[in-house]
């Protein structure tokens, strides 16, 4: 009797997670219907976002999300791979330990703090270098890249470390240099894991809100220069959700949330199931 109750309780709790995820999609879709019906595809192709006349085109926000994530990847990928190579092939044990602690430290820092740091310390530098306000796409991309760097470097290093020592030694035994071993053995061997790690970091970057909200602006305008202030989906949601005043406005914000969820869901699923399958199952 108690046995039955207990097992049903656990099953219910487990199913709850599926229910919640399905419910999130359904609820966001239902809330978006008004905007979907009103604007159709114009929602994602037009960039006129005018709450005062109830016109909503999210092109600028979508573009901002994609562009800031792209910039972040552009800065973060080479550095993360460099750091991963440094950690797995160059650094001594003490430095590895030190960096391990540093990664934990950085992961413990709430993303809102990256945003604050970006606003007060990084944006002024961009402003001095490039003129303008400093707030904009470039700042957002760089702050975002710093935010995902530790995670990306750590998972890339883990992927590289799956290469068996004996395989690396074989390449050294043929007279290879460290770089020969890295490019010809480690990277090809760990390719799936490395790509998966990078895509996973990308999935996180798309949805990151607080690190970029401070430094992006919130201007619904597709930027003409990389230093122009613009917006992204999370930035729009963070700034406008609590202030929306018409049902169409709300509905448009919900549609943005739905788009964001769908984008990150697809990216993360590709990383997890296409590239990281083996590691994840641990077999």
């Amino acid at each position: 009797m108690i046995d039955k109750i207990f097992s049903n309780l656990t099953r219910f709790s487990a199913l709850l997670i599926l229910v919640i995820v399905a419910w999130i999609f359904v609820e966001l879709y239902n809330q978006s219907l008004e905007a979907i019906n009103a604007f159709g595809f114009d929602f994602i192709t037009k960039d006129e976002w005018a709450p005062n006349v109830d016109k909503f085109g999210a092109y600028a926000a979508i573009f901002g999300s994609v562009a800031s994530t792209f910039l972040a990847m552009l800065f973060a990928i080479p550095i993360a791979i460099g750091v991963a190579i440094f950690l797995s092939e160059i650094a001594h044990d003490k430095i590895k330990g030190f960096f391990g602690v540093s990664v934990e430290l950085l992961a413990a820092i709430p993303s809102v703090i990256y945003g604050m740091w970006g606003l007060f310390y990084f944006v002024p530098i961009i402003r001095d270098l490039f003129g303008g306000m400093g707030i904009g796409l470039l700042s957002a991309g760089i702050v975002l890249s710093i935010m995902i760097l530790p995670f990306m470097a750590a998972v890339t290093r883990d992927a590289m470390n799956t290469t068996p020592d004996i395989l690396k030694e074989s390449a050294y035994a043929l007279g290879g240099t460290q770089w020969d071993v890295i490019k010809d053995v480690i990277i090809p061997y760990a390719r799936a894991g490395i790509i998966g790690s990078i895509i996973l970091a990308l999935g996180r970057a798309i949805g990151e809100t607080m690190a970029v909200t401070f430094v992006m602006g919130n201007v619904h305008h597709t930027p003409s220069a990389i230093t122009d202030p613009t917006t992204s989906i999370p930035v729009t949601l963070a700034n406008e959700f609590a202030e929306a005043d018409s049902s169409l406005y709300f509905s448009s914000l919900f549609e943005l949330a739905l788009l964001l969820l769908a984008m990150s869901f697809v990216v993360i699923a590709i990383a997890k199931f296409y590239f990281l399958r083996k590691e994840r199952r641990g077999v």
Binding site: L28, G207, L237, F241, A257, L260, I268
Partner: peptide
Amino acid sequence: MSAPSIVIGAF
């Protein structure tokens, strides 16, 4: 675990 947390807020 990696999904955008702001979307949970919207939900």
